[in-house]
Amino acid sequence: MSDNDDRSWGQFVEEVPDEELLSEFEGAEPRTAAEIADAIATTEYEARSKLDALCRAGELRRKRVREEPPLTVWFRPRAAFVDEDGDGRPVDERVDELLKDMEMPGVSGMMRDWRRDAVRAAFDRLREDGELEAADFKRDVYPSHAAGYDDPEPWWETVSERLGDLPGVVDPHWGGETWRYDGR
Rank of each mutant, 00 (worst) to 15 (best):
C55Y: 07
E128W: 01
I36V: 15
A33K: 00
A118E: 01
Q11D: 07
H173L: 12
V16L: 09
E177D: 15
G106P: 04
Y149L: 06
R139L: 06
K100G: 08
D3A: 05
R61T: 08
R56N: 11
A57G: 06
T42P: 07
A134S: 14
E44K: 11
G86D: 04
P17Q: 05
F12V: 01
D151G: 02
D96K: 05
D101K: 08
E19Q: 11
P77T: 14
P69Y: 07
W114T: 01
A118T: 00
E35A: 12
P167F: 00
R61D: 06
V95Y: 01
R139D: 09
F12P: 03
E59F: 12
D96V: 01
A80W: 03
L71E: 15
S8I: 14
D83M: 06
D129P: 00
T42S: 15
A122F: 03
R127N: 06
E46D: 14
M111H: 13
M111E: 15
R120E: 08
P30I: 13
H173I: 02
R62S: 14
R120T: 01
M102G: 02
A53C: 11
D87G: 04
E131G: 11
M110E: 13
V65N: 11
E26N: 04
E24Y: 05
P152E: 09
V65C: 10
D52P: 02
Y142I: 05
E68G: 09
E19C: 07
P70A: 13
L126Y: 03
H145D: 08
W174Y: 12
G183L: 09
F137Q: 01
F123C: 09
D117N: 13
V141Y: 03
D182H: 07
E128A: 11
S108F: 04
A34W: 04
V107L: 07
D3Q: 06
G164S: 12
T72N: 12
A135R: 01
D171C: 01
A37W: 02
E35Y: 06
A33N: 02
P70V: 15
D87L: 10
E128D: 10
E177P: 11
L163Q: 00
R139W: 01
D151K: 13
E103W: 14
M1H: 06
V107A: 14
W9V: 04
P17N: 02
D113T: 05
D150Y: 04
F123S: 00
G183H: 02
L163F: 07
L71N: 14
W114P: 00
H145V: 02
L99Y: 05
K138R: 15
G148A: 12
S144G: 13
K50E: 11
T32Q: 13
M111L: 14
W155T: 07
R127W: 04
G130W: 08
G86H: 03
D83A: 08
R48W: 11
E93W: 05
E93A: 13
R116F: 06
F137N: 02
D92A: 15
A122C: 03
D87A: 04
E153T: 14
S144K: 15
E29R: 11
D83V: 08
L166M: 09
D5H: 04
S160T: 10
D129F: 08
A41Y: 15
R62N: 13
R48P: 02
R184N: 10
P17T: 04
F75E: 07
E46Q: 10
L60F: 10
M111N: 05
F75S: 07
E68L: 11
E84H: 11
D171I: 00
G148N: 05
E14K: 04
W179Y: 07
D182Y: 01
S23A: 15
M110L: 05
W174V: 00
D150W: 05
